[in-house]
């Protein structure tokens, strides 16, 4: 990532989301298709070389879990938060 300007108002996209993607590291073959298909650029590499989602950017669309060839990404439902409970 290069240093870029982000909107001043932006805090996080957490209140967009109903469910979050969770990677099963046993099934993952590190192909990177989830990284390619993420419309928000929220998927990034961790230290071990596996992929994970930056939860500030993830909107929970589920494109990554649909496109995964080994079906290692599952969408976990998050507890619904009321507007005044978000940060």
């Amino acid at each position: 990532m290069i240093d870029l300007t982000i909107t001043e108002e932006f805090h996080s996209n957490q209140d967009w989301r109903n469910s979050k993607p969770v990677w099963d590291k046993e099934k993952c073959v590190q192909c990177g298709i989830c990284y390619l298909f993420c419309p928000d650029g929220a998927v990034c590499l961790d230290e071990e070389g596996y992929y994970q989602a930056e939860l500030d950017y993830c909107k929970g669309c589920g494109l990554c879990s649909r496109q995964c060839p080994t079906k290692c990404i599952s969408m976990e439902e998050e507890v619904a938060r009321l507007p005044w409970q978000v940060r």
Binding site: I2, T7, C31, Y35, D40, E54
Partner: peptide
């Protein structure tokens, strides 16, 4: 077919 070989730089910023 390895998407990892694609350029890493993101010019279209996340957080929109």
């Amino acid at each position: 077919f390895i998407p990892k070989l694609l350029p890493r730089d993101e010019y279209f910023v996340s957080g929109r």
